[in-house]
Amino acid sequence: MSREIDYGNLMHSAMRGLIRTVLQDIAENGLPGNHHFFITFDTAHPDVELADWLSDRYPGEMTVVMQHWFDNLTVDDEGFAVTLNFGDSPEPLYIPYDAIRTFVDPSVEFGLRFESADEEPEGYAAAPDAEEEQDTVQVPAEEKKNADIVSLDSFRK
């Protein structure tokens, strides 16, 4: 009986654990210094909770910013809830970690990106027997200054 270590899923779990740890610290202590987050998530994920008008306006994905004003941040093992301001209208959201596509803190040029095999970034090629999901730690181009991009695919067998 042959078994293999599933590095792809282990990395996803570790990266989502990092997000959970960061958000838990923010919930308890607030945002330090210039830290702020751009979080892009899949609005069609079955466990995402957001106002109908937001899901209608953003049917595929949505990026939220946690910076100057946010309220009621609660973090659990599956995701987080937060109230954000949309044009002077506070709206509660629940975002499961599995729905997150990118998590970026541009104040320190840090970013995580969760990609599926059909969303490979330009310049990256999947190995013929690649896992269902690709893992890339990267900062989106609009937020990238001189950040290093590390492809986790290079560590796969």
Rank of each mutant, 00 (worst) to 15 (best):
N9W: 09
N9T: 09
N9V: 07
M11W: 12
H12L: 08
A14R: 11
R16M: 13
R16W: 06
L18K: 13
I19H: 05
I19S: 01
T21R: 13
V22M: 05
V22A: 04
V22W: 02
D25C: 00
D25T: 04
I26P: 05
A27C: 08
A27Y: 07
N29S: 11
N29P: 04
N29F: 13
G33K: 08
G33E: 11
N34Q: 11
H35P: 01
H36T: 01
H36M: 13
H36L: 09
H36W: 13
F37Q: 03
F38M: 03
I39Y: 01
F41D: 00
D42I: 06
D42V: 03
A44V: 12
P46I: 08
P46G: 03
D47T: 10
V48L: 10
E49T: 13
E49Q: 15
E49K: 15
A51F: 10
D52I: 10
L54P: 08
S55D: 08
S55P: 01
D56Q: 09
D56P: 00
P59K: 12
G60F: 13
T63F: 13
V64D: 06
V65A: 00
M66H: 02
M66Y: 03
Q67C: 04
W69A: 13
F70P: 05
L73G: 09
T74E: 10
T74A: 15
T74R: 15
V75N: 06
D77K: 14
E78W: 05
F80C: 00
F80A: 00
V82Y: 09
